[in-house]
């Protein structure tokens, strides 16, 4: 049980070099990145994105996470209160070369994307035994 109360965070829009041709918004999803002994995990908050709407790309050491969401609100409804904007998600990270690119795995649960990036064998810390001479 945590006593902390959740706060509303202002969404950040993706700043792009070129202008988008579509009138859609893209937001920067908040992420958690943590590292364990043999992998790096990226968790991204992308509510409204189904499993099929996620695209993860890895090109030249850049990890791209993209989430496309379907339209949630029906068109025949009248808005009474609007506190959050709906849009797509995009975020890029530069990866170290120590990631085993073949073994990247991703799961999507309750709007949170988890990408597990396993480290390459030689990048893992190794205990070196000192032998008695």
């Amino acid at each position: 049980m945590t006593d902390k109360e959740l706060q509303v965070k202002q969404r950040q829009e993706v700043q792009q070099a070129g202008e988008s041709t579509k009138p859609e918004r893209q937001y920067v999803p908040p992420v958690d990145i943590f590292e364990s002994k043999d992998s790096v995990t990226v968790m991204a908050e992308m509510p409204g994105v189904a499993k099929g709407g996620v695209r993860i790309g890895l090109e030249e050491g850049t990890l791209t996470i993209e989430g496309t969401r379907g339209d949630v609100a029906g068109s025949a409804e009248n808005f009474l209160l609007r506190e959050f904007e709906t849009g797509h998600y995009l975020r890029r990270f530069t990866l170290a070369e120590t990631i085993d690119q073949e073994k990247i795995e991703a799961t999507m649960t309750n709007g949170i994307l988890t990408v597990v990036l396993p480290k390459r064998e030689q990048a893992r810390p190794r205990q070196i035994e000192v032998k008695a001479g």
Binding site: Q7, V8, E45, P47, L81, F84, G111
Partner: peptide, 26 residues
Amino acid sequence: TAGGVYPPLNISEDTDHIYVRAEVPG
């Protein structure tokens, strides 16, 4: 959403229903 209460809500209605939507990832 500045100074708002979590979770942010979108509320809409049609003739028969009220719809309350909240983003609660995770």
